[in-house]
Design a protein around this nucleic acid. Structure first.
Lengths: 390, 390
DNA sequence: ACTGTTCTTTTCCGACGTCAATAAAAGAAG
DNA sequence: CTTCTTTTATTGACGTCGGAAAAGAACAGT
């Protein structure tokens, strides 16, 4: 977001034009008329907005257009030329930095993992700069410029300011990360919360494309949730939003690190599942892979732990659906590796707890590799580049 | 919303102008410069938008401006002339119709209650027409035209279409109420869900003025919730939203009419409190007035029922705060008559269950008479008249 | 009276998007 | 093969909206 020297700028500033570009970006190849309809504009406006974008190389006409049973003049499909520009997305965790290089359509071409030896700001900054530098070298092979960097951090992040207000994992307070990383990398940097970044990726390049109200629920080490309401990601007045992990599902349940009992996260997060298996069997379980294996081999305690987790998640999703009435909920995260172990419970608990037609909400799952978190960061960088506030 | 013959129209159509008017309407008398700041526009735009509105009589310059310690040219305050136009708000319940006459600033001048003998559509329509007619006669005394009617109905209402999709109390399905009532009254009619209407009233004329993210929680016969996110009332993709009443707070709690156990509504709604007192004491309690009396006179079972209700409400509010991070939550409804009986529990449960800085959310209470529901309906009519989609 | 300060208005101008008309590109009909 | 119909894309004129900048207005000190 910072003014970085000689950075290439998107050749469009009007709200309508950036909305048109966004529509093409997220809703695949479209005819100009169809773009006009979906963006609520006239066909003329689309024609006028599209031309400079084609000239600048961001849009192309799809020559090999599939011709649906057409009457009248055949339509010319317009799509984004993903290869026109590249972006870097970075996910910072407590002990690792994951970087990806994506094109303008947020397709990953290269990924890099780097272990983090220290959580000091300077160490993280250096590691980030290293990863960005490596990916820029890779980028040379693609013949397109890298136009921005997105960094995703868990915790309380002010994207507008580009600061990390508080990160429990990194133990940072009020770090102006966008500015600092902008200096070390020489590129425009966008910083956002990791779950919100993932939500942006779904909104523009995933299962949320074209929807104005949906939710993303991540299952894994923690239980997170990104919300899109009225077409915009919810940020929360005080930096807190989407804390589905701390919705109470059982006041007499296990204690959560937040101090309450029976939070979704205290039942369905990886550590909670491992703990429950240990408490039931007395056997220490190393990691989730092991836990999944146990469950699949029929160990009752493991199966039961996953069933309870599924029920908690389903209830949490129902709570979101009851309050916001989203069109769709996308369940994602590393925890989905065990999806078959709790899919049924999620669905049953959701259906039972959803009120009235909130149950008509479409609940989907989407597998998630760890690089997807970094891809979310890239999505925020793309969003900032286009500077669409939608 | 229907095109009604010779209805007076608001002399403004541009988004900026209606936003300017809305800002003045909801944020009291303001200087033009201050309006510009809050609306994110230039001072010139405000001057240009304000003039025709003053000429049409909707705005006036406040002559008796309080002059704060001023340096430089004194500011001219602009405010809405409430007396310029009148609106009718109607709340339809299962057995009563409440109508109010308000001015443009949504201040009630007259109220009318009419018992409903039948829930048939024709009977309700006739009663609505009667109430509107009576209020229009009253309106003659104020020398201002009645410019619209708002009707609030509980259930699934499509405000855009002006239809009641489903109302459990009235047993209506897909009734085009706005159109029908428009014919019988000869005025433009807006139909909306009752809780959302109340939320609009708070957003424009109440404790939500100027906020872009807040929630209204109503406590009484049911537990409802209206949400404003990104400056707009949440309607829900399937007509369901804000169902805080069916957030589960205790999976082993009392059964709720929705089929689940331990919903907020199953613990904190009027009937739930009465039932709990009856089950604990064996004494049949007639109504909430009686229940409050018992609690005030020290009957332990009654006090405990209210305490539990407060805890459930506080947890429900915390759930909203954790998911959406609103700036403020406004607790309202007839149930507040017993506020002193559960205020402490609401606050404690909220503080305990709110995650991190979500607890910084400002929780307020606002007493609510039954006419306020009708006032909410009037607010939707005013909103439609100005046709601001904000 | 003059200056400084702040609010308000005016004038000018560029930009944006719609309207309506026109061109383009097919298949269908004769 | 020509002409018509249908649908999509483009063009240019036009009106409008809102911003920038400058001028004006209204007061308090000095």
């Amino acid at each position: 977001m910072l003014p970085t020297p000689r950075a290439e700028r998107f050749p469009v500033n009007t709200p309508a034009a950036s909305q048109i570009f966004t529509t093409v970006l997220s809703q695949g190849p479209l005819t100009r008329l169809e773009v006009a309809r979906r963006a609520g504009l006239s066909a003329a406006a689309v024609t006028k907005a599209v031309r400079p974008l084609i000239e600048a190389g961001y849009l192309v006409e799809d020559a090999d257009a599939q011709a649906p049973p057409a009457l009248g003049r055949p339509a010319n499909l317009v799509r984004v030329d993903g290869g026109r520009a590249l972006f870097v997305g970075i996910k910072v965790t407590g002990d690792e930095i994951i970087g990806v290089l994506t094109d303008l359509c947020c397709r990953i071409s290269v990924a890099r993992h780097t272990a983090l030896t220290s959580r000091d700001l300077t160490a993280v900054l250096a590691a980030v700069a290293d990863v960005v530098q490596e990916l820029r070298i890779e980028a040379d092979g693609f013949g397109a410029p890298v136009l921005g960097v997105g960094i995703a951090v868990s915790g309380d992040v002010d994207r507008g300011e580009g600061t990390v207000r508080y990160s429990p994992f990194l133990e940072w307070h009020d770090v102006p990360l966008a500015e600092l990383a902008g200096i070390t990398t020489g590129l425009p940097v966008t910083v956002d919360n990791d779950v919100r970044a993932l939500t942006v990726a779904e909104q523009w390049f995933g299962a949320g494309a074209g929807l104005s109200d949906f939710a993303v629920v991540t299952v894994g080490a923690g239980i997170g949730c990104g919300l899109v309401v009225h077409g915009r990601v919810v940020a929360g007045a005080h930096g807190v939003a989407g804390e589905i992990g701390h919705v109470t599902v059982d006041p007499s349940g296990p204690r959560c690190h937040c101090g309450n009992r029976g939070c979704v996260e205290a039942i369905a997060a990886d550590a909670a599942i491992l703990r429950r298996i240990r408490e039931a069997t007395g056997v220490e379980v190393a990691d989730t892979t092991e836990a999944v294996r146990l469950a699949h081999s029929g160990v009752a305690a493991a199966r039961e732990a996953y069933a309870r987790a599924g029920e908690a998640i389903g209830r949490g999703i129902a709570t979101v659906a009851n309050l916001l009435g989203p069109e769709r909920v996308i369940i994602s995260g590393e925890g989905l590796a065990a999806y078959d172990l709790f899919a049924e419970q999620i669905r049953d608990a959701f259906t039972a707890a959803a009120f009235g037609s909130a149950a008509r909400c479409d609940v989907q799952t989407r597998p998630l590799t760890f690089e997807e978190w970094a891809r979310g960061a890239a999505a925020t960088a793309i969003q900032s580049f286009i500077r669409a506030d939608t």
